[in-house]
Nucleic acid binder design. Structure first.
Lengths: 224, 224, 224, 224
DNA sequence: AATGAATGAGTTTTCATTCAT
DNA sequence: TATGAATGAAAACTCATTCAT
């Protein structure tokens, strides 16, 4: 229920102490908000619940974030930063194109599976037409990292003769991301309608293999 | 934002008259709720707005649906029925397996593209852990139609020698549905982050082709 | 929970039949109202719950009783009639005054103990300043039966030399009624505050004896 | 109808000022609630009326008491505290047992007569099966003060030779309390049915004497 | 004598936000 | 930075009562 999203290095304060510490309070609110927004959506989340969970009070929330909307935007920023960091840390150049692609797909797949809160928050943002993001300019910057990585990788694969040409890197990312995202975001309705838990461990293994397989088959050069 | 979902056979009452007509009132509320829930999510939707849009009053809503939750469940029931009907109306037997598969993918893709409300409502349901559905047992019945269709089709394709074997029909459906769904559900965040509108007409054409292509490549028998 | 109050001779209609039968419907509503008013008080009772329990519909209630208030008045009328009948059926003339008094006390005590709904309804009426009764003139007629009985009995006891004189029959009734009523009406707060259930079987026996004892000691002529 | 119940030590703020003062607001709500609940019962009472009378707003009520039920529980707690204080302030040790008993009876009688709101609130609590009290554990503590007082007094009277033995103090309290309570609680139905106002001044004097008399006669040792 | 549907006003409760300290 | 208390508007839901049939 409280899957962490992004990095949260709580520097473990002694309980009972209540230091005058703006940074800590701000972070506590952010963490609490992440959890509550992911659990209940934007409108369903309750400012009171957030500050209670954060161990602080409402005026603090407004002091740091201005409004419920501002808080949600900050949470999203945090969330996107987490993914960006992962992508940035990938060192794919050393691997053959095929292996690199496999690795990229797997990392993407795993990140979604490990961060359901991340997925839910982005769903919530979309339900609200992503408007909260519009007011948070920090987000829209340098998020096309993956696309660049993919573009480079595709080119290299073509040169190595293992990928066919003419594939739009954004479309490829769409294929990878949609599968990775949907199986988490729509897990609940699937559980009920198809009676299968898409994120059960054995299912996850199969689907991971399947996605890698589908991507590589999609990229495989047509027989000459 | 006001795309219709499901069938609505209004039994065409003379306009201007406002007779005591339970069926009509109920349907009006259902339609209004569909629109508003899709626009604002569950918690964000306002019962007042729904009844106003439906041209009736709150007590009528509670008379017919018991609660806001009950209403949402009824909306979802309606929504799923729409998709079921489409699937049931497909006559794929006459086509060669390859063409049939192409057709199935395209229909699925197009249905999602044409019914963004449908997509949003299911997103909303998932944000709330699909709990509203749990109380609406009518939904969980006979929704595995697609999977059966796919299973049959896969078998036929193998017999015809155009598909390879060993593909789980549910996994294949997951691949098709995730792509079709995600490009609508996450359209807003993509617009901001990747600066491309996934549902712009020209994009849609490309992606439709891509999905068919990916599926067929995925199913193509390995060269002997 | 559904202790009956007054007489209810249901002439057992075959279930499934729904005859056009005003008398029966009226009585069903009255019975249901008795139960619900006793359980929830006047304002707490819900017209819907009453008609549902009665197996009929709201317009029927209004057809027969005019309003929620009118219904409550009718219930009270019914309730008082029950007690009146008991009192009228007592034949005390044949007994010696002491025994007759003992019997009267015991019957009063037992009636309250056996009809907690009766007690609750009268409590409810008093909470509302007995206003519903004011509009039900049938009630205020000939309810001083007990007082007359007591007056006669007291006189006879004085003549027999077993009671002292100068006791107001209404005051004596107050003493008997208050004890019999209060132990039922205030049973719940006593249970919590004094940890004793005033209407537990063994308690009831003791208290019954006690009340008879107290009354007879109260009436015993002063030694002289 | 507006008899005060319990103690109210308003910490006398300068009138005209409306400072941020939680204690005062809380007490105002409590006082208003006491009045309104006594007048209309629990369900009949209106939260709006209470806050208006208290000169504050609904959110304050929920801020301090959580719910209408919580408020009612707090009112009852207050109410019981008032009686407890009276009982604790009685100094009966100096009096001969007979006089002490007379005094205890009179004080109990008078307290009920002077606090009809007290009586009504307890009636209301019983109508609702005393459930609100169950959630207010503070009430159930140390309310058996009277019973202890009575027990001690009975023992002393037996030693002094003025009371007979074998009387359960709780039963004696029941006798005293029932009479004192009922004549107030059921005043309204009696007024209508027996055409006598049980709390009219001259009536009250007579009944007070009667209750003392009945208790002392009940306790008088049997002639040897 | 009976019903399903409708009404209008009111109910309790909650919300995001801000003030005074 | 931090807090307890306050605010005003709106939220979901309920109610007794009545209409059309």
């Amino acid at each position: 229920m409280t899957t962490t999203v992004g990095l949260r290095l709580d520097d473990a304060a002694p309980p009972g102490s209540r230091p005058v510490n703006g940074k800590r309070t701000r972070q506590n609110i952010l963490d609490a908000a992440q959890t509550v927004f992911a659990e209940k959506g934007f409108s369903g989340a309750n400012v009171n619940e957030i500050v209670t969970l954060a161990g602080t009070t409402k005026p603090m929330l407004y002091y740091h974030f201005g409004s419920k909307e501002g808080l949600f935007a900050a949470v999203l920023e945090n969330v996107y930063a987490g993914m960006r960091d992962i992508e940035a840390s990938l060192r794919l150049d050393a691997l053959p194109a095929s292996d690199a692609m496999r690795r990229l797909v797997e990392v993407t797949f795993d990140y979604h599976a490990a961060h359901p809160d991340w997925v839910r928050l982005i769903s919530v943002a979309n339900i609200h037409d992503a408007q909260p993001i519009l007011n948070a300019p920090a987000i829209a910057v340098r998020n096309e990292a993956v696309v660049d990585i993919l573009r480079t990788l595709l080119l290299r694969g073509v040169q190595e003769g293992v990928f066919r040409g003419g594939v739009d890197p954004l479309h490829l990312h769409l294929m990878i991301a949609s599968f990775s995202f949907y199986r988490i975001s729509n897990r609940h309705t699937w559980r009920i309608i198809f009676k299968r838990d898409l994120n059960a461990p054995d299912e996850a293994v199969l689907q991971r293999t399947l996605l890698v397989d589908a991507v590589l088959r999609f990229l495989r050069p047509d027989a000459g």
